[in-house]
């Protein structure tokens, strides 16, 4: 029996779809049992979404009324809906837009950017309306599974799809990036804040050296791709299983830094570092939305 697979893109960068294509040989194996019935970013057909979809991969966050409708329609037609990538699962980098007023954003884009030329107006036709908030997929419809990552790892995509084809329940790693990290973990807490352009000591934990590495708060599964190359983890795979809120967890970890160093580490840098991919699903944003409603 062939499995009817659909993939769809909402407000994202299509990077997740590139990662899907990047599964390479594994994709060819999968395609023996899979019929790709709908794939809007890969095949240039948007409507209609076919019926009877078995598995749907949905990339991107819900930013416009069009996204919202598409997400609902996909939910009606798909048996197993996967939030594909961090935009869809947590709101993604787009979620940082929630720190601004959405109308101010629209105004900036259509009236203030230089590239707009002469036509300074918000188009009223052929473009969907922006929602007041950037939402993750699960804010709009029920989601059966998430594949985190910005973009997700091809190996993991293949593993999850493989498990589904075999009739098994897919699973994600429950560990944190640190658990997979090959760097030597030091017990010393960082005292000094260091910036990304500085050169780290090789083979030593980056966080202990003062680089802000989100490893401790981030879900494993990427084999610590970034720290093992000397680049601090930015937390693209969202909160680890035992972490309630990635940003707040990192705020905790920062406490050991010297006050003088912390003084330089201010908003909005804190938000965009600690909640880079998860602001739209963070505790902070949840409260902000509720305060705004009142």
């Amino acid at each position: 029996m062939t499995v009817r697979l659909a993939t769809m893109g909402m407000s994202g960068c299509s990077g997740c779809h590139i990662a899907l294509l990047d599964t390479g040989v594994a994709l060819l194996d999968l395609l023996k049992d899979v019929e790709l019935v709908y794939s809007y970013p890969i095949v240039d057909v948007k409507n209609p979404i076919p019926d009877n979809i078995d598995v749907a991969l949905v990339e991107g966050s819900v930013r416009t009324d069009h996204d919202q409708e598409m997400a609902k329609e996909m939910r009606r037609k798909a048996k197993f809906l996967i939030a594909f990538g961090s935009c869809s699962a947590f709101g993604g980098v787009n979620g940082l837009a929630n720190t601004f007023d959405s109308q101010a954003g629209v105004k900036y884009v259509y009236y203030e950017t230089r590239s707009m030329g002469e036509q300074r107006q918000v188009p009223s036709e052929h473009v969907p309306t922006i929602l007041p908030e950037n939402l993750r997929l699960s804010d709009v419809v029920k989601v059966d599974f998430i594949i985190p990552g910005c973009p997700p790892f091809p190996d993991e995509i293949a593993k999850v799809l493989g498990a589904l084809l075999a009739g098994e329940t897919p699973s994600l790693s429950t560990k944190s990036v640190c658990d997979e990290c090959p760097l030597e973990q030091l017990t010393a807490a960082p005292t000094q804040l260091r910036r990304i352009y500085e050169i780290p000591e090789p083979n030593k934990c980056l966080l202990s050296q003062g680089f802000i590495c989100m490893g401790p708060a981030t879900r494993a599964g990427c084999k610590a791709e970034c720290p093992s190359r000397g680049i601090p983890c930015t937390g693209c795979r969202g909160p680890a299983e035992t972490v309630w809120d990635q940003g707040v967890a990192m705020l905790d970890a920062l406490a050991a830094l010297e006050e003088k160093e912390l003084a330089e580490f201010k908003l909005p840098r804190i938000t965009s570092t600690f909640a880079k991919y998860t602001y739209a699903s963070s505790e902070l944003d949840k409260i902000r939305k509720r305060v705004k409603q009142k």
């Binding site: 720190t99 920062l254 406490a255 050991a256 908003l267 409260i287 902000r288």
Partner: peptide, 23 residues
């Protein structure tokens, strides 16, 4: 030894965060 100092740093940053969400 340092619990209070750690708390202070966290709460100072949290205060700033709370300002951004209307609290």
């Amino acid at each position: 030894v340092t619990g209070n100092l750690h708390a202070e740093k966290r709460m100072m940053k949290l205060q700033k965060w709370l300002e951004t969400i209307g609290l």
